[in-house]
Structures are given as structure tokens and as C-alpha cells.
């Protein structure tokens, strides 16, 4: 141990790394992946997020969806608000600030040798994508890996072009939509229907879930009913936040700061609070 090691100075939540928009890849209606060049490596763990800051417009908390070692930082974003609509108007070359990475990641190291069920709803798959790529690279460290994807319509399913590569990495992918279009070969319904039909051993399985909160509540409840321990279910919550560092107080959920204690929580930590309306 180096006793002379100097602690790093505290980080400022308001100052990020300058980044340039490299390209924009449409993913689904209203959804695109924006890739940014930070001029060097950007270290993060799957499940963490950035505050994507457009000066003069605002900042929004967006999970990082690129591979941990990719040359660019990727954010898959649905244009729903002020910042995300302004983002959608940016041209390649435009400058932004990436404040981050922040938050607790998916607990991939703790899942060694376990079976993993990944459950995504809508753009929730954006937070799981970097985990899927990371797991695929260390495929031998894990048991069975199943990915359950739910969306409103077939056109809303993200990253479908990458499914073949994920299947080659021995990831079993099942999809479901609740508004099937003509020619949709898969089932119609909710992602919980896929979970109900999935065969897994609850003692050796961990479940990672990201999607709308009602969907995550339903998935967690279904997982618990199937015998999964609350400590083996992980949810990624979404809240408004200004700082992402536990200073602004906006993202509080019960006694937690979603930015700092989450966004990835084990179900045992938050189950009593998830059950309370308007918390």
C-alpha cells in the first residue's frame, strides 16, 4: 500500500468532459443512438449513466448503452423532453458535456457462474445493452443467459440488428410486443408473459430488469413468486436529477438517492418503498 497516495480532489457535479457528437443512428420511432467522442477513453461500468449536458438547454440523466471499451460513448435516447428534443436536433460535430459516469452499475462481477435473466421494457434495453455486450465478452464466466425484451410494437424493439451477434454469444433472446403488426412472428402480450413461460432454477438465477416502473414492479413480483430471492433481483430506477451526485435531492426515493445509491438497486433494498404510491 502506498501511504503517500493522495486522495483525488472531489469531483464537481457541474463540470463534465467536452464531447463531440460523432453520429446518430435511428433505432426506433423517436429513438436514436448518439455516439460521442471524448477525445480519449471513457471508463464506466455497465448500468452507470451520464448527465448529458447541452449548455443553454439543460441536462438529462441518460444511461450509457455502448460497450465499456468502445471508442465512443453511446447513449440511446427517446426524444420526450426539452433536452432530448434538442439533442435530436444536433448535427455531428456539435459539442456537449458528458458529466459522469455516475451511479451503481449492474452487479456483473457478483453474477459469476450464475444463470442470468435480463428483462427489458422499451428503451430500458438501452441500460442493459452495455451489460449484454460485456457479458458476451466474458461469456464463460456465466451460466445460461436469457434476454426477454418487451415493446409496444415490433418497430419499437431496439438493437434488433445486433440480435444475431448476441445469439452467437449464446444469449437466448425472446421478444414480445403488445401491439403486434402484420407479419409479426412472435407472441403478443407483456414481458411478464415471457417470464411466466421461462424455465429457470431460482436458486442459481439472477434477474436484471430495466423498463417503466410499473413493468419492473410486475417483473419483480413475478420473479419473487417464482422463487427468486429479493437479493437476486436488480432493478434500474429512473428519476429526475440535476446533479447525479447526491447533492440536489431531486431523485430521492424513500431514504435513497437514486443517483448515488442506484440507479441499480437490489429488490430487497427498495421493495417496501416501491409498494407505496406517490413516494
Amino acid at each position: 500500500m502506498n501511504v503517500f497516495r493522495v486522495a483525488p480532489p472531489p469531483r464537481s457535479p457541474w463540470h463534465g468532459r467536452p464531447a463531440r457528437l460523432v453520429d446518430v443512428e435511428p433505432e426506433a420511432p423517436g429513438v436514436a443512438t448518439y455516439r460521442f467522442d471524448c477525445g480519449g477513453p471513457f471508463h464506466f461500468a455497465p448500468g452507470q449513466f451520464n448527465m448529458l449536458h447541452l449548455p443553454g438547454i439543460g441536462a438529462a440523466a441518460i444511461s450509457i448503452s455502448s460497450a465499456p471499451d468502445a471508442a465512443t460513448v453511446g447513449h440511446t435516447v427517446r426524444a420526450v423532453g426539452n433536452v432530448t428534443h434538442a439533442l435530436a436536433r444536433l448535427r455531428p460535430g456539435a459539442g456537449v458535456f458528458l458529466r459522469g459516469p455516475w451511479g451503481k452499475p449492474w452487479p456483473l462481477d457478483a453474477l459469476c457462474d450464475r444463470d442470468v435473466v435480463l428483462v427489458a421494457g422499451g428503451v430500458g434495453l438501452a441500460s442493459l445493452r452495455s451489460a449484454i455486450v460485456a457479458v458476451g465478452r466474458r461469456r464463460g464466466d456465466f451460466g445460461r443467459i436469457r434476454l426477454l425484451v418487451g415493446g409496444r410494437a415490433p418497430a419499437d424493439l431496439l438493437y434488433a440488428r445486433e440480435y444475431p451477434a448476441w445469439v452467437r454469444a449464446d444469449i437466448d433472446i425472446r421478444t414480445i410486443v403488445d401491439r403486434p403488426a402484420a407479419g409479426w412472428p412472435g407472441p403478443a402480450g407483456l414481458v411478464t408473459d415471457l417470464l411466466a413461460g421461462l424455465d429457470f432454477d431460482p436458486r442459481r438465477t439472477s434477474l436484471l430488469c430495466c423498463g417503466p416502473e410499473p413493468m419492473m414492479r410486475a417483473v419483480a413480483a413475478a420473479g419473487r413468486a417464482r422463487g427468486l430471492a429479493a437479493t437476486d433481483i436488480f432493478l434500474s430506477l429512473e428519476r429526475n436529477m440535476a446533479c447525479a451526485a447526491g447533492l440536489c435531492g431531486l431523485c430521492q426515493f424513500g431514504p435513497t438517492f437514486v443517483c448515488r445509491d442506484g440507479p441499480v438497486f437490489s429488490h430487497d433494498r427498495i421493495a417496501p418503498f416501491l409498494a407505496v404510491r406517490h413516494l
Binding site: 457541474w14 443553454g56 439543460g58 441536462a59 435531492g249
Partner: peptide, 26 residues
């Protein structure tokens, strides 16, 4: 009480932006 929001305030030219912290109330 420490909750606050942070607003991006551009000037009229759009070439200068200030991050302004404001007390927020739950």
C-alpha cells in the same frame, strides 16, 4: 433543506450559458 434544481440560462445571443442553481421545494 438543500434540494435544488439547476436551470440552463442562455443569454440573448445564445453564445453564453449559465448554469443557475435555484432552491427547489418538495
Amino acid at each position: 433543506c438543500f434540494c435544488h434544481s439547476v436551470e440552463d440560462v442562455p443569454d440573448l445571443s445564445g453564445d453564453r450559458a449559465t448554469l443557475e442553481r435555484r432552491w427547489a421545494s418538495c
